[in-house]
Amino acid sequence: MKTLLFIMYLCLTAPSANEKVNGEPEPPQGMVYVPAGDFIMGSTYGDPDERPQHIARTGAFFIDKYEVSNSEFAQFDANFNFPQGREEHPVIVIWEQANAYAKWAGKRLPTEKEWEKAARGTDGRIFPWGNTYDETFVVWDLRHPRGSAIAKPESPYGCFDMAGSVWEWTADWYKPYPGNDVPMKEYGERYKVMRGGSNFNNHSFIRTTHRYYVPPHTTARYPVGFRCVKDID
């Protein structure tokens, strides 16, 4: 009887198939877990559209460890071509393609909030790894595959290349943060926000708070890729 009770106890307390021992859900392959809660969003030192710095909140979600690669995207779109040897390079696509891929994969594009939280955690850091910069912390240029930074720094939740490599699409339109009082004619539902910067552009754009805007039907010649998120049931 005691044994039976113990087995019942184990069944009730043991982690389920997608749950870790510490209570966190087990992420699907290639993804990491970001818990629900508050974090510091925006900055006081960046562009006017990063202001005001404020406390934002997300639910819990999973997010891809790496940007989606060429070979992964080709599984979704059989007509997608890329140079041989670039299987592991991040894919560069327009927002509409990124969104379609995410749906096909049973995922979705991250909101700006989710992207920023996954990149900087809760402590308001400038970069995914902290507040200092070194060239070895980022994928040097577009000739290199994803995850090839020399120092291989992770974000607080275990994501790679959220600074540098390619820009990354988010789900959101380019709109001012609540309380922002600097008008921009670009705000509205014409442009999607991309994050994370690209090494081809200036280092300061790899800050976790930087926002840039591009129409969803073009990359406008910027190297823009994406990573996906997945809701937790």
């Binding site: 562009d47 200036n202 300061s204 800050r207 840039y212």
Partner: peptide
């Protein structure tokens, strides 16, 4: 647009080359 240009960072408060 009021934003820093994509290569125009000389700011002491921002990391730059």
């Amino acid at each position: 647009d009021g934003k820093m240009t994509l290569w125009g960072n000389f700011c002491p408060d921002l990391p730059h080359q």
